[in-house]
């Protein structure tokens, strides 16, 4: 009986440890906001979940990722700030700079396919257009 408890404890501890070292959060919790022009369609949401949200959220362990962009804050951004973030998403994805090579070396499954990249940039363009008429 004692042995079982010990084994159980070790299992729980090691799983917790693994999830900490991994450091990639995939659960998205993007609340509804007060900017009605901003919405995330399901196909975009899936890509964000798989390739972006792990670093770009308010609880992220990546200081830089958190500083530059937090998807969960986007719905409540002022129009100018929001357009700025979307413009930068468009730019970094077009240039193939995100997700960073360092992350992809460990998580190749997070790489954006050509189609996914185009879904993201089209989305950014659409919301920018909605917000600024550009």
């Amino acid at each position: 009986m004692k042995n079982v408890i010990i084994i159980l404890a070790i299992t729980v501890i090691s799983f917790t440890a693994i999830s900490f070292t991994d450091g990639i959060v995939t659960k998205t919790n993007i609340p509804g906001g007060n900017n009605p022009a901003f919405s995330i369609p399901d196909n975009v949401q899936t890509i964000i979940d798989n390739s972006c949200y792990g670093c770009h959220n308010s609880d992220s362990k990546s200081t830089k990722g958190k500083m530059k962009l937090r998807f969960d804050k986007m719905p409540n951004m002022k129009t100018g700030k929001l357009v700025g973030k979307l413009s930068k998403i468009r730019k970094t994805i077009t240039k193939g700079k995100m997700p960073p090579k360092k992350i992809l070396a460990e998580h190749p499954e997070m790489a954006l396919t050509k189609e996914e990249a185009s879904i993201m940039t089209t989305w950014a363009n659409d919301v920018i257009k909605e917000l600024s008429g550009e």
Partner: peptide, 19 residues
Amino acid sequence: YKKSDMAGLLDDISEEVSE
């Protein structure tokens, strides 16, 4: 620059300078 890119650049300025 396009207006949206101006916004992106201004966000860069804000980030880079404060950091």
